[in-house]
Write a protein that binds this DNA or RNA. Sequence first.
DNA 1: ATAATATACTAACATGTGTTAGCAAAAAAA
DNA 2: TTTTTTTGCTAACACATGTTAGTATATTAT
Lengths: 205, 205
Amino acid sequence: MLVYYLRLMARIKIDKNSSRKEVIVAKAAALFREKGFKAASMRDLAESVGVEAASLYNHIKSKTELLHELCFGVANRFMHKMDEVESQKIPAIEKVETMIRFHIDEMINHYEEVYVSDREWKHLSDPYLSNFQNQRRMYRKRFAALIEAGIRDKEIKKIDAPTAVLILLHAIGGIESWHRSTQKISAAALTDNMITILVGGLTNK
Amino acid sequence: MLVYYLRLMARIKIDKNSSRKEVIVAKAAALFREKGFKAASMRDLAESVGVEAASLYNHIKSKTELLHELCFGVANRFMHKMDEVESQKIPAIEKVETMIRFHIDEMINHYEEVYVSDREWKHLSDPYLSNFQNQRRMYRKRFAALIEAGIRDKEIKKIDAPTAVLILLHAIGGIESWHRSTQKISAAALTDNMITILVGGLTNK
DNA sequence: ATAATATACTAACATGTGTTAGCAAAAAAA
DNA sequence: TTTTTTTGCTAACACATGTTAGTATATTAT
């Protein structure tokens, strides 16, 4: 008996507003988050996309490009928010709280990308690496400046501003554990608790 | 002209209180911290130890064993401290502060090991992986219990204790950035600032 | 000095990696 | 339909990886 097998080729599914490359980048974010950039192989990624490894290269230039895309995508969002907040005419402590809320929101709703950008940027290669590090340094300086303004206005305790920034940013990174935990409190409750502790820790009186 | 090359073999230098294995583990901590577990190769490690890669295997069983050693070494230290603090007869808020200070101290003085244990444990393999995860969960539960006791005694704000733990632990992880920064404030100043913000964020009034 | 043990070396292996070449098939444009 | 372009496939590459075998050389014990 002669049997013909109909071979149909896989295809990367896309919805209206996202290119195939964007689908790959999104899957990469999830995978890099789960395994780490180095431990995640292109064959892993291919499988999660539903295609053979070589096929990915019709859409992307390299594995590292995926990391660029993720890291700078996230970095740009934070930079733009910082621009926006800096130019607002509100008390410094409110600026700080706005930024904290933004960080929390990003960490809740764009978990994978933000997490990867935060933990895996080391694996970028120059010139992207130094570029990213510079942006990061700059961002933290601007954040510290917000806090220092709050200290001058006596809204915020007399503390070392860079240390405060470092605490804030890393504390928010802890939302990672919230995502992984089985019995999550609601996102709103999480946000409230974080704001209470963090802003409470900064505020004068 | 005939020339004889005198070949002398490298040797892992040890001082009185540390075996060759301990030297390797220490170097591994530094390397894993810098590059990440996956990205750090045994040849890298060998070079940093001053020996050929194969020679390492006279002292260790595998690359993963190095990670075990580091992760469980750190985990045990924290567990023992928790035992000690739990059994003390002092207010809950002071227990919390003691533990926070211990974390800060560990992060300052045993940076590499603690950092690696915190970030690279994912690369452990079962049964060590589940074991480690269990210990971690347990530890956080006990930490949360300290905070809950403080809430009952009205020493600590009414907050979600697990969330508070997650904030505390991750915030302290931020000392990583302090280590990497060029213009460091003193360790004592860092500690003071962190205590001010974190304990201040928890304390009622 | 001799024997025994600990430690290091060279060479090589099997495996997993990112990536490319060349071709097939599907989709889009003509 | 025919042509062109996009997208996927198989096969293979060059290279890095963790690790082992077998051997040489130090160090320690007898």
